[in-house]
Amino acid sequence: MKYNKSLQSEIDLLDEEVQEMVEMLSSDDEGDRLVAAVNLQQECDEDTIPFLIHALEDPSSSVQLIAVTTLWEMANAKAVLPLLECINSKRDKKVSDEACSALKELINQDHLLKLLDYLESDDELQIIYVLILLRKIHDVQALPSISPYLSSENKNIRKEAVITLRYLNQLTHFTPANTLADDPDQEVRKETMLTLGNFREGCIVPILCNSLANDESWEVRRNAAIALEMHGDNSSSKSLSSAISDSHWQVRKFSMRALTKVLSEEYLGEIVKLLCDDYSDVRKEAAIALGLLGSKKAIPSLKQSLDDADIEVRIQSQKALEKLNV
């Protein structure tokens, strides 16, 4: 790959040793170009940036990969736009992944409009990468551009779009995201739960409660419990008190944790039962909740937990008893 005239004239300004490497980088032999790229990586000379950018178009993906890594190490803003050209399905997957990782560190607010231009593409991989990069900028101006991808036919795009929503500053509600709680794909539903946890809108708590009670995937139910903990809404207490008897221990653990924010003495019986759960994490959360509840009726059960096999449960039971002045 020969250099154009402007790059040729820049070669003369370089050190003799670097000049040799840069000329080798345009050799016809792939091995020579690889050696030159590795040597330039070790030199890490800012003057070689235009040549490394030129190497991003090299026919060999190995040379491209080294050029991307070197530009990342140099962390120069000049490399941002050329690296954006590398995040698409025409490139080797390794090169695109490396370029995306580099861009995560190099992009800033100034590149928002450029990123939004790249988002309007037919290349699904490019859309996914740009959605990931928009999380770094977290500017709510990107919302109109992200919104159409919430209804994409590609489940990976829907997933990345809904994740990106929770990174946008000042975004407190966005109704199209609510419908993804019933998405056919489990991964999308899982991420939607966490995104809804960050929103503040009246209709969200019932959606989360419904997923907590009825979703077939325990991971979705667990994330619904985590989201309800973020909300701390009293109307979720009924659903959470049922979910602490869920078949999966992680759902029981996070529901118990969420329930501590909306505690009421009517759930005392169910919480005490969790002190005998098979999983120590659940027992620990139950001990914490009983301490916060402050009911004297829990004292005998907490005293029994002082002999628990797990030290963390014993510590939390002791702390709970101290709160109850025992």
């Binding site: 091995g31 020579d32 690889l34 050696v35 070790q42």
Partner: peptide, 10 residues
């Protein structure tokens, strides 16, 4: 292994 490369040695 490429003859001109010395990356590992360096």
């Amino acid at each position: 292994c490429l003859d001109k490369c010395k990356a590992c040695i360096e």
